[in-house]
Simulated assay, not measured.
Amino acid sequence: MGSRLDKKSTKKKRKWVKVLIISFIILFLAVGAYAFTVYNSLKGAVETMHKPLEREKSEKREEDVSLKQGTPFSVLLLGVDQRKNDRGRSDSIIVLSVNPNNNSVKMVSIPRDTRTEIVGKGVQDKINHAYAFGGVEMSIATVENFLDIPIDYYVQINMEGFKEIVDSVGGVTVQNDLDFTYEGVHFTKGQLTLNGEKALKYTRMRKEDPRGDFGRQLRQRQIIEGVIKKGASLNSLTNFGDIFSALGNNVRTNLTFNEMVTIQSKYKSASNSMEQTQINGGGTKIDGVYYYMVPAEEKQRITTMLKEQLEIK
């Protein structure tokens, strides 16, 4: 019974983790210059978050990324289910590409069960196993090989940090269009202010929504927008220490503080246009194991789109 409950809980986490990892990177794009002037209050959190990669740059880039010159860049967002005495797996994998020249951000979600070569392991396996085998480094190498694009930065999020981050901005306000009850909480129609725990439940519900996944994704976007709105509202937001403490406790990235400042300055307008893309494919079983198979033409479509966004050949 315990095992079944654990699997159910893990499945629920996957439904909302995208809200957390997207919120993190957008928060840096949207909070405004003031947040980055209080370096002393953020120093400890930034130092805790920062974890550089062993490599200097991607082998798929001919020239280094220059954030000061506005080079389009990519970020691998990993939502990790960390367990005691276990590295865990990356239950959510999103490639985010930012282009300040066309003022846009494009996000591609890679299904966790996607079958591909695990670079450094020499096997065909589920793409999320790359993290279990070799952590962030192997995950980056595998995603680069799968999509044939460079990964310039990474952001790793501990999924348990979702509630803490929402609470750190003082909760979020959403406009709910469906009256429903989920896990003991009644969500009425109209404007709602949600704390971290309620926001988590708000994004989990699917079965009672006639729109199914579409309705759930709508609520997830509402939470993202709510975090952005609070982060950008400098008149009402005074607890930057709490926000960055929450991020410091739950985030690891190779972005430095100075790079975050530059992104805020040079790339902020890109957050105004965000496009989410799913990778189309189908499920199958090989030797009794379920995999998500991506056709070659679909993979090429995604690769072409991302290369255009990153302005690389």
Rank of each mutant, 00 (worst) to 15 (best):
M1E: 15
D6M: 05
K8V: 07
S9H: 11
K12I: 12
K13E: 15
K13R: 14
R14M: 12
R14Q: 15
W16D: 10
K18N: 14
I22P: 00
S23V: 11
F24N: 13
L27N: 01
L29A: 07
A30N: 04
A30Y: 00
V31W: 00
G32K: 00
A33H: 12
A35C: 00
T37W: 04
V38E: 11
Y39G: 00
L42M: 13
K43Y: 05
G44R: 10
V46L: 07
K51N: 12
E59S: 15
E62I: 15
E63Y: 15
S66F: 10
G70T: 01
T71M: 02
P72I: 09
P72W: 02
P72T: 06
L77V: 07
D81Q: 12
R83C: 11
D86C: 02
S90T: 10
I93Q: 14
S97K: 07
V98S: 08
N99Q: 00
P100W: 03
V105S: 08
V105M: 14
K106L: 02
V108G: 07
R112Y: 08
R115G: 07
E117D: 10
I118Q: 13
K121R: 14
G122T: 11
V123S: 08
V123W: 14
V123G: 13
Q124T: 14
K126P: 03
H129D: 14
A132M: 10
G134D: 14
G135F: 12
G135L: 07
V136F: 04
V136Q: 03
E137S: 15
A141S: 14
V143R: 13
F146H: 09
Y153N: 05
Q156P: 01
M159N: 07
G161A: 05
E164K: 01
V166H: 03
G171H: 02
V172K: 00
T173S: 11
T173R: 08
L178C: 03
L178D: 00
D179W: 06
F180E: 03
Y182L: 03
K189D: 09
K189E: 14
T193I: 10
T193G: 08
K198S: 09
L200W: 02
Y202K: 00
R204F: 01
M205R: 01
E208Y: 07
E208P: 02
G212H: 03
D213Q: 01
R219T: 04
Q222K: 15
I223N: 12
I224F: 11
G226M: 06
I228F: 00
G231E: 00
L234P: 02
S236I: 04
L247A: 08
N250R: 10
L255M: 14
L255K: 08
L255G: 10
T256A: 06
V261H: 08
T262S: 12
T262C: 09
T262Q: 13
S265G: 09
Y267V: 07
N272F: 12
E275A: 06
Q276K: 08
I279N: 13
G283R: 11
T284W: 06
K285G: 10
I286C: 09
I286T: 11
I286F: 14
M293I: 15
V294H: 01
V294N: 00
V294C: 01
P295Q: 04
A296P: 05
E297F: 08
E298F: 04
E308F: 02
Q309S: 11
I312E: 09
K313N: 15
